[in-house]
């Protein structure tokens, strides 16, 4: 336990250093605005991908309605800031809580389904949320929720991303997380060993939804508007693609998946005609040669780095 706390602190220090470095570069105008926007996008999508990974990869429940929860977070937070004039932090929390509540309510009945059935139910759910929003004129209906102030900046996005990563990592390492992994590996065996499968599935689903809501709040306050077309099932698939590309069950994999796909999308912006072809080709090649995703269910662990540097870094990192 102590070792874990130590490594956690070391990672936190590392994360904050990275934050300071990037923030410094942004303040010094070395990172141009377009790439700033992409860095923030990466942070938002890392929150989305890791939270979806908790549901799909760790707990093994195939959910493809993530964009729906994201939409709830986006719209709830926008209502808080635009209509009620509350501070951004309150808006983010409300967005996350609203999505969590909905995730909980929806999770109870649907998580009794499994495999394809659950996938279809969550797909439907995402569309229900989107079309409901589409028909509420209070939040702009089809023309979208306009006039959202831009509160999201690199600091918000990065710190919330860091929080998400720590939360999910520690959740996975806890008793609850182990129970979730047990469910993924074999639900019947897990139940036989006394794991309350419904409880843990709903728990993972709710946490995943909550973080999707937080990401949604960041999303809408980054793009000045929340529009129903941003939350179609294509969005859910995009997030799922990132998770699968990196490897289901691997958090570092999700991060790499997000960075790779966002990077490709940004690099290829000048060649719109072939962008989707390259994107699709990459996925096909990957699935042919590495169907378990880039990282499989493994993490990039410290051990790999300590091997590379002859074990010195490991000691140094723990000593920090």
């Amino acid at each position: 336990m102590r070792i874990q706390t130590k490594t956690d602190l070391a990672s936190l220090a590392c994360g904050l250093t990275l934050y300071a470095l990037l923030e410094g570069l942004i303040l010094a105008d070395i990172i141009p605005p377009y790439w700033q926007l992409n860095v923030i996008r990466v942070c938002i999508y890392i929150i989305l991908a890791t939270s979806l990974n908790l549901i799909n990869g760790i707990t093994g429940q195939f959910s493809i309605g993530h964009a729906g929860f994201m939409a709830i977070g986006a719209y709830m937070s926008a209502i808080m800031t635009v209509k009620l004039g509350l501070p951004f932090l309150v808006a983010i929390l409300t967005g996350g809580l609203a999505a969590a509540l909905l995730g909980f309510l929806i999770g109870l009945p649907t998580l009794r389904l499994s495999g394809d059935y659950l996938a279809i139910a969550t797909l439907g759910l995402g569309e229900i949320i989107r079309i409901t929003i589409l028909n509420i004129s209070y939040v702009g209906g089809a023309s979208g929720f306009m006039g959202i102030p831009k509160y999201t900046n690199f600091t918000w996005a990065f710190l919330l991303m860091l929080f998400t990563l720590f939360f999910i990592k520690n959740f996975v390492n806890s008793t609850h997380g182990r129970a979730c992994i047990a469910i993924r590996e074999n639900e019947i065996a897990a139940e036989a060993m006394g794991v309350n499968t419904t409880k843990y599935k709903v728990l993972a689903f709710t946490i995943g939804a909550a973080f999707a809501g937080v990401a949604g709040a960041l999303f809408s306050h980054n793009f000045y508007m929340a529009h129903p077309t941003s939350f179609t099932f294509m969005q859910s698939f995009d997030i799922l693609t990132m998770v699968v590309l990196g490897g289901l069950g691997s958090m570092t994999g999700s991060i790499v998946g997000v960075i790779a796909l966002t990077g490709i999308s940004a690099y290829m912006a000048d060649y719109p005609e072939i962008r989707m072809i390259i994107y699709a080709l990459l996925l096909i090649v990957l699935m042919l040669f590495r169907p378990q995703g880039l990282f499989g269910s493994k993490e990039i662990s410290l051990r790999i780095f300590s091997r590379l540097t002859g074990g010195e870094r490991r000691g140094a990192a723990q000593g920090n």
Binding site: I3, Q4, T7, D8, A10, S11, L12, C14, G15, T17, L18, L21, L22, L25, I30, I31, P32, Y34, W35, N38, V39, V42, L165, F166, K169, V172, N173, G177, M251, T252, I255, V256, I259, A260, G263, A266, Y267, K298, E299, I300, S301, L302, R303, I304, F305, A317
Partner: peptide
């Protein structure tokens, strides 16, 4: 594997972001 620290996560992020930057300049 999850016992291992988050440092590698950060390293991955650093590398990726830096590579984005290189593309951004020039």
């Amino acid at each position: 594997m999850f016992k291992k620290s988050m440092i590698p996560l950060a390293l991955v992020a650093i590398i990726a972001v830096l590579s984005l930057l290189v593309a951004g300049c020039g």
